[in-house]
């Protein structure tokens, strides 16, 4: 039921792990099925230079997390905010309809991580 890309990112997820010195962290729980994604970003001159994730969820949720960490690397914060759930799903060669919400999880966690970074900046 999953595309080759989804299976690849699920079986060999990129950028897994905690990031103790992250500049922004976004945690998003999935109200639909109860899954949770944690996304970490490292930012330099308004550009995301590194990203990592931890995910408790289905195959699609893990593949989405892996893909989104790949997609954000090297992007400016504004560019990263343009990443929609559709774009992540598209990059993964499509998701089954009932799995589109897993893609949401990734996009929302990213938005929260960027927000978190901006809030921290304000404080400093």
């Amino acid at each position: 039921m999953y595309s080759k890309e989804v299976m690849d990112h699920f079986m060999n997820p990129r950028n897994v792990g905690e990031m103790p010195d992250a500049d922004g962290v976004g945690v998003e729980g999935n109200p639909v099925c109860g899954d949770v994604m944690k996304l970490f970003i490292k930012v330099k001159d308004d550009r995301i230079v590194d990203a990592k994730f931890m995910t408790f969820g289905c195959g699609a949720a893990i593949a989405v997390s892996s893909m989104i960490t790949e997609m954000v690397k090297g992007k400016t914060l504004d560019e990263a905010l343009q990443i929609s759930k559709e774009k992540v799903a598209e990059a993964l060669g499509g998701l089954p309809p009932q799995k589109m919400h897993c893609s949401n999880l990734g996009a929302d966690a990213l938005r929260k991580a960027i927000e978190d970074y901006k809030n921290r900046q304000k404080k400093n």
Partner: peptide
């Protein structure tokens, strides 16, 4: 961890099981 992810990874090893998880 979540059931569907377990099923998929087990299936890649040729092991076919079932799950009652939400996903």
């Amino acid at each position: 961890i979540e059931g569907e992810a377990m099923l998929l990874m087990l299936a890649s090893k040729g092991i076919y099981a079932a799950s009652g998880s939400a996903c």
